[in-house]
Amino acid sequence: MIAEFFRPDGRHLSKAGITLLMLPFFALIFFAFLYPLVSLLSISVLEPQPTLENYRKVVDNPIYLTVLLRTLWIALLVSLLSLALAFPVAWLMARSKGPKVAFITACILLPFWSSVLVRTAAWAVLLQRHGLINEGLQLIGITSEPVRLLYTQGAVVVAMTHVLMPFMVLPIYGALRNIPADYARAAAICGANPLRTFREVYLPLTMPGIIGGFILVFLTSLGYFITPALLGSPQEMMIATLISQQIREYLDWPFAAALVGVLTLFVTVITLAFSKVFRFDRMMGGAA
């Protein structure tokens, strides 16, 4: 998946040397990631006795099934919105030169340097009862009195899109930048109009970037916690807020573990299914 990125030259180091150098890494990942996760998941099938009851509860109880479906729906909505916002930005970046590219890149990277909690607070202020958005809506006459924007599903979707959209721009820009300008000229010479050139030349070549960005945003959205916890309504939970509630209010560890299991299963299946196009190193390199 990322083998080409490291380009091992295979020289010099003995097997023992390699093992010794990698030992701290493996120890950290084992003790602070794999072991805790596996022991949590084992609770979901072992307590109160060996059972799949905790998982059955997730799909049988309509309340929990609704949370699961809502989470998938919100993640899909956020990913689609991010794509709609990010693609034109990446397109213009690939078409521009010099200071303009630097300016747009700076604008897109700026959120990475700003606290997630500060951004969430900013949306809480913008969306509040007498906030800027409500005042604006009244000013242009869409509503005559303040409407409830905060603590709604819409608030969660908008704020999550705001945080995650930049992650979509970088992989798409990376893919677009690598398409030589000759291709568009060749297509034009063969008689293709701009729309057809876009559909048959640019779109297929950009697809790995689009899918990569889409999957990254979708996966991150699935487990999102802070935004739904602070801006969402308690009646419209997502899976992460449900997990938190089960642990902190009901102390129902086996069921919470099953919910974590469902979430982990989802992200694992999606990651494996798209492992060919899902190039983390490129996405991270973009952020760096």
Partner: peptide, 29 residues
Amino acid sequence: VRGAGRIGALFQGLLIGPIVVPHIALAVA
């Protein structure tokens, strides 16, 4: 980079884990 081999594939697989597993799952665990 200087050695790799089969342990390298394991390394890469383990590296991707913390990226795709949601922070909420890790936090609860």
